[in-house]
């Protein structure tokens, strides 16, 4: 089974992209509809998270696939794809965490018209730029991995608390917590895949699999609640 997966790796990556891209599109469209009606900032940041995830995966696997298949030869193109992928992925993580925290920082009665005018979001944009720049200089993804591990560690704590406080009212809160745990494991595996497992194909396939389960969980929640 693992041999088959390794042999058909590129095809599976494209399939993975299509599935994740479709999931993100559905989540963004459904949450955007609710946001336009409610102007609720939490829904906005949740929508933004999956918008950025969608863009990140599109860049990495679609544009990246063109590069790896030799359709585009410029090494700078390869660098650009990696940098953009990392930037949008980091921002997606920030938005997902902030969707859980925004009430502690913002005035509920006077929502920001645009996230660009929100100083906290501006800080996220700056932090993402710094992370991406330093990773680019060091030719690694370590800072991205570490930032996401920290983000999802916090998200686990917050989502667990939400589940304890409101689990009877919000049935999906349990799955949200599970999704955060899966994301944390995924990022940790990503981080240790090179130094400990020497980029083992089995570990990398597990990362893809866990990631896919996380996105499917969110899709399940969004579709069930908005039907």
């Amino acid at each position: 089974m693992l041999e088959w997966i390794v042999l058909n790796k590129e095809l599976l990556k494209i399939f993975y992209l299509l599935v994740v891209g479709l999931i993100c599109t559905i989540i963004v469209l459904k949450s955007h509809k609710l946001f336009k009606l409610s102007m609720h900032q939490g829904i906005r940041y949740f929508r933004n998270a999956f918008f950025f995830y969608g863009i990140a995966f599109l860049i990495r696997y679609f544009l990246g696939a063109l590069y790896h298949q030799g359709n585009i030869s410029s090494v700078y193109y390869g660098y650009a794809v990696n940098v953009l992928f990392e930037y949008f992925l980091v921002m997606a993580g920030f938005f997902l965490l902030y969707s859980l925290l925004w009430k502690r920082f913002e005035d509920l009665e006077s929502p920001h018209l645009s996230s660009l005018l929100n100083p906290i979001i501006t800080i996220f944009y700056m932090m993402a730029l710094v992370i991406v720049f330093l990773d680019f200089i060091g030719q690694t993804h370590n800072l991205m991995f570490i930032s996401q591990i920290i983000i999802f560690a916090f998200a686990i704590a917050i989502s667990y608390k939400n589940y304890l406080d409101n689990g009877t009212k919000g049935k999906f809160l349990k799955f949200y917590f599970i999704a955060m745990v899966l994301s944390f494991i995924t990022w940790t595996l990503n981080f240790i895949a090179s130094p400990i497992f020497n980029w083992s194909q089995g570990i990398l396939m597990s990362v893809y699999g866990l990631n896919l389960i996380m996105f499917i969980l969110f899709l399940y929640g969004v579709v069930k609640i908005t039907k």
Partner: peptide, 21 residues
């Protein structure tokens, strides 16, 4: 749009509750 808000209010409320937003 106001009617649409009232129809979707339950979904909006559930969404906020279930995703901890």
């Amino acid at each position: 749009k106001g009617q649409e808000f009232l129809q979707e209010y339950k979904s909006i409320e559930n969404f906020i509750e279930n995703f901890g937003l």
